[in-house]
Simulated scan of single mutants.
Amino acid sequence: METFWEAFKRQGVNRRDFLRFAFTITGLMGLSPSMFPEVVKALETKPRVPVLWIHGLECTCCSESFIRSATPLASDVLLSMISLEYDDTLSAAAGEALENHRKEIIKKYWGNYILAVEGNPPLGEDGMYCIVAGEPFLKHLKESAEGAKAVIAWGSCASWGCVQAAKPNPTTAVSIDKVIKNKPIIKVPGCPPIAEVMTGVIMHIALFDSLPPLDAQGRPKQFYGNRIHDTCYRRAFFNAGQFVERFDDEGAKKGWCLYKVGCRGPTTYNSCGNIRWYNGLSYPIQAGHGCIGCSEENFWDNGPFYQRLTTIPVPNVEANADKVGIAVATAAAAGAIAHGVISKFRSKNNKGGE
């Protein structure tokens, strides 16, 4: 299989643009600039990695996010960075031809391909709540994972179970790690995950032939190492005790902290605050809506979304200039009155002493 650099040259990409791309990818993977030479070398020498992308119970929002990647473009990812061999949503082929190709890829690249899973398997009724190519997705998942060198759980559906696994969970939907026990799984939660995060995870595996550093829950540390609260541009208002009380109040118009109207930023780990969405254009908090914690486990059952978390202490309201002025004036008036009372008291005492 051709290397990344060979794929770029085939498409007419010059050396300058190739190096610019390598620098972008270095930052996207959360690596330091000193790693840039190693990334260039890997792009020049490593073969593109075959990827199988399968779909269980889900809404396809992960794919929708991915194809809107702007840095790099989704087309560059698919055509130059990885070898997407199977995707029953994006593939031009369909039916038996596509399913036969999936089985051929599994045999041909046994132990060397990446399995990307979007959605989750329902265990109820022997998996009959989700059928792919005439068979339960549960079987589809096990068969596809058997020869993979690593498995990526795209989105909160595959990572945690998401809305399908929310109470009362009639289909007995579960996260994929409840089914796949013998393969390393990288969880990339979010509903959906950020496109550039998805690209960064794939590229790390492809270029370094290893998993990115993971936290205790199996999430890549470079993308899930901080709370949204830690990188939120509204954090200063939280620290100052300036909160939106209602979505139509003056605080909302001034862009104050959304914590009191339910924002889950203080308990949610993701890159929304720094990478944002659609080439850094915006994210829910910037658009005026609090984080609902979509990348956290069981977030559907952690509602209601518009009530604040009582476990997070709210700072005291910071006194603004007007309040300080009023307080000073009040204190001065009180001081003047007190001074007058004391003066009169002293005057009476002095007269009595005479």
Rank of each mutant, 00 (worst) to 15 (best):
I202R: 04
E96Y: 12
V244K: 00
G265W: 05
F238T: 00
L138Y: 04
E296V: 11
N226P: 07
N120L: 15
I185N: 01
F243R: 00
R264F: 08
I25H: 02
G218P: 08
D322K: 15
H339N: 10
G255F: 01
E99M: 13
T89H: 06
P212S: 10
A145W: 00
P184D: 10
S159Y: 09
I67A: 05
A327M: 14
G293C: 08
P122M: 12
P315N: 07
E125Y: 10
S32E: 11
F237C: 02
L281A: 12
L207P: 01
Q164A: 14
G251Y: 07
I54V: 12
A74V: 05
E64V: 14
Y113V: 08
V39M: 03
L98S: 06
G225M: 10
F8W: 03
A236T: 13
K348C: 06
F4S: 02
N14S: 12
I275K: 09
Q164K: 10
C232I: 04
A332N: 09
P213W: 12
S34T: 13
A145V: 13
K103L: 14
K183I: 14
C130P: 00
P315M: 10
S175I: 11
E296L: 09
Q164P: 04
N14Q: 12
A236K: 15
A195T: 02
T199R: 00
K149G: 07
A97I: 15
I25E: 02
V179S: 05
Y86A: 03
V151N: 02
G288T: 07
E146D: 11
V117A: 03
Y306A: 05
G251L: 05
D248L: 12
P193M: 11
D87Q: 08
F237W: 14
R68T: 10
Y109G: 03
C157H: 07
G12C: 13
I202D: 02
I228F: 06
F4I: 15
P313W: 09
P304M: 06
I312W: 05
F223R: 01
K167I: 14
V174H: 01
G288N: 11
L79S: 10
H55M: 07
K108S: 07
E196K: 06
E318R: 14
T60C: 07
G27R: 08
K254A: 13
Y283R: 06
N302V: 10
K221A: 09
P184G: 09
I131H: 05
D87V: 09
S295K: 06
H140V: 12
V39W: 01
F243E: 01
G124E: 08
P315F: 11
T60G: 04
M1K: 09
L73W: 07
A97K: 14
G251Q: 04
G241Y: 13
A321C: 07
